[in-house]
Design a protein around this nucleic acid. Structure first.
Lengths: 144, 144
DNA sequence: GTCGTGATGTTATACAGTAACATTCGCCAT
DNA sequence: ATGGCGAATGTTACTGTATAACATCACGAC
């Protein structure tokens, strides 16, 4: 899916969920798309400032929070960053793999593996929220 | 295991690993133990200042980093916090469950479930680091 | 119109973490 | 003992991350 298609799909996705991908939110989403991998909020802020003059932290944080809420982005806690989700349509939980060496990120579907975690949580009388796991390790290229 | 026993075991644990649980590090560990659940670095800093007058952020961060390295604490990325590990002796990977409502934390052993995650990662040509997962959800009490 | 609601702008500040350098402490080789 | 080394701690200052609180704007419902 190219960038334009993605944005269009994202817009429809928001519409279906009863909210709007406004101009600002779209602009922030585009800025995140332009990077590959994890982006930091203040990087987005800097980019945004280049494009539209002044902008303050709350502006980008509000947009990023919205995009995460809609499932268009995932927050990567371990890195204080954000990464695009390219399958926001389907409801799969997923696992985000972050390479400790090169920083590259990949997202994989893990319904099966997560079932095991849910079992363990159930055994501990704990109900997991829907969530995307972020795990760190070494990608193929860096492992060599 | 009570607090005193824990500290003693922790001290021995460090000794075995060829490093020292110094007075400062022990004091920080005690401060973390005093809370239940997740503690923030600046909370520890404030506590430390109450006990010994001035203290600066690097002082507690260095101690916390050391304790995490020794396996005595886990970092909880999602909360920018730290939590005591009560089984630092065994090498199990574990899963930390954080209740979204009451903030209580429990740690459970999940070798089996993690095996599934490792399989998925392998399939993606990705080598996971040893790590402790942090998942959010609702604990028994808050689910009602 | 105007009112309510949601989005955005603005200011200021709180919270989190680290770089860089100074100082102290414990140890041990001489 | 002493001087020198490495690890730990102290100190200053800063960078990065995030949010509170309030002002303003856009726009549809009535």
């Amino acid at each position: 899916m190219n960038r334009t298609d993605y944005i269009q799909a994202a817009e429809a996705h928001c519409e279906r969920r009863g909210c709007k991908l406004t101009a600002l939110r779209r602009q922030v989403l585009e800025l995140v798309l332009r990077h590959q991998g994890v982006v930091k909020a203040y990087q987005v802020l800097a980019d945004l400032q280049k494009e539209r003059g002044i902008a303050a932290p709350p502006t980008v944080y509000r947009a990023l929070d919205f995009l995460v809420e809609q499932g268009l982005l995932h927050r990567v806690d371990a890195l204080n960053g954000f990464v695009v989700c390219d399958h926001f349509e389907c409801q799969h939980e997923s696992m985000i793999l972050v390479c400790e060496t090169c920083g590259k990120v990949q997202e994989v579907d893990v319904m099966a593996a997560l079932a095991g975690l849910h079992d363990v949580a159930d055994a501990a009388d704990f109900t997991l929220s829907r969530q995307n796991l972020t795990l760190t390790g070494l990608c193929k290229a860096c492992r060599i």
